[in-house]
Design a binder for these strands. Structure first.
Lengths: 240, 240
DNA sequence: CCTAAATGTAATTATTTGTATCAAAAAAGC
DNA sequence: GCTTTTTTGATACAAATAATTACATTTAGG
């Protein structure tokens, strides 16, 4: 998201939609409007967005329902617009997965501040979405060739990686020095959430360590954080 | 963090402080109160916190100033409590780095929902907590490689550290020549508060000494302060 | 369609960590 | 100076957690 962030404004009142999108555009953002849940889905399918501003009260599918639906599927920040003073709505909205809310009527400047705040947080949490596809990464003296599925040590020895190895390693390399739970890792590598007795990640880590670590019994590159998960303990340099 | 999140409540009104901390504790969180910016600093230095609830209007250092100060230094979520309706405060607060705000007077349930929402966002990707992550520290002739979880003596002998070893040592290295009570150490390492018969820290110190001290029977690096706690008796140099 | 590799699952083993216990050291009281 | 009390250190053990192995299932390639 190098350039201007792209905001999707969902509200059934034409006047609000238009004034908000115009205001956002005047303030260095790209904005797109949708009049209901269905139009929102269409726009979402056809473009990249960084944040959604979502009205709670809408004809057709309700804002809360939309919010719940989205927050389980994608990780896309949501700011809810709630009718004035309805505390219940606000609380429910937050519990359901909104990142923030704003009571109507609102000051556009305040909406802007909240959008900036949420985006700032979102970009902190997500270091970089860069895929390593087609690139080369150096870490801990090793070189990963993501295309050809192998890593090479300083002496030129190559080790072949399986697709699962590569996916796991890529996920780790994209987030160096970050503790990732087994749940997160499973989500990021396979797109599913872990059952209670799921040792899949343990296993993949074990296999990957055998290929990556100089001494797999005393891992120094992929470290274990007890009760936490695993962590790539090395600086990563991505080469093109 | 693994267990109950620890919230620091900063407000000059005793009644608000106490009712909020009690309410949070009844809802499965740990809460600590501070009456002003200075007391907050003291508590921050001696414990681990996951989130700060901060009143804007305070005698002494102002809430906005505190917020700015903290958000540049640490990455610790902040929820601001603002006087009713003062929109300017809210906007400035968000721009300055607060993660959320709540207008006074507020519904405790709403505060709880906001705290949960902010924590959920913050914990999405936990960058390795400690400031030593990715660095190397020299102390008492030893070198700690925080990434790879080992310490090395001048002869190149390496000793592997467990997660708990590393956490404890890191906490100590970050506060050299400072007496830390068992309570503080437990909070900083494990994020929980000690029961009356808790010898966990004694034990961990004992284990750590065996790895760190030249003569574990006569500890010289990690010293015992009777009725006080433990103290790292060495200068620390952090290398990048 | 068969074979071989890769991946997920279950089971076993090893490690780490918290708790209980007892011994040793330091302080306090007599 | 001696006993008593308190605090700390070490050990042993049990529970929790992680690593590894073995095995079954799936997938990909020929």
């Amino acid at each position: 998201m190098g350039d201007a962030p792209h905001i999707l404004v969902v509200d059934d009142h034409r006047q609000i939609r238009e004034s908000v999108t115009r205001f956002l555009e005047r303030n260095g953002m790209r904005a797109t409007a949708a009049k209901d849940a269905h139009e929102m889905d269409v726009k979402l399918a056809g473009g990249h967005f960084d944040l959604i501003v979502l009205d709670v009260m809408m004809p057709g599918e309700d804002g809360l329902s939309v919010c719940q639906r989205l927050s389980t599927k994608r990780r896309l920040p949501i700011i809810m617009l709630t009718a004035l003073g309805l505390e219940t709505d606000r609380i429910v909205g937050l519990e359901i997965g909104a990142d923030d809310y704003l009571p109507k009527p609102f000051n556009p400047r305040e909406l802007l501040a909240r959008i900036r705040a949420v985006l700032r947080r979102a970009s902190l949490a997500e270091p970089e979405a860069c895929s390593l596809a087609g690139k080369t990464a150096r870490f801990a003296g090793l070189t990963l060739n993501a295309d050809a599925h192998f890593i090479e040590d300083p002496y030129g020895n190559r080790v072949q990686l399986t697709t699962a190895d590569l996916r796991l390693l890529t996920v780790l390399l994209e987030r160096p020095h970050t503790i990732l739970s087994r749940d997160q890792l499973l989500d990021l590598t396979a797109g599913r959430s872990a059952g209670p007795l799921d040792r899949t990640i343990d296993n993949q880590i074990s296999r990957l360590r055998r290929k990556v670590e100089p001494d797999p019994l005393r891992p120094s590159i992929i470290t274990t954080v007890r009760n936490g998960g695993y962590c790539l303990a090395a600086d990563v340099e991505v080469i093109d």
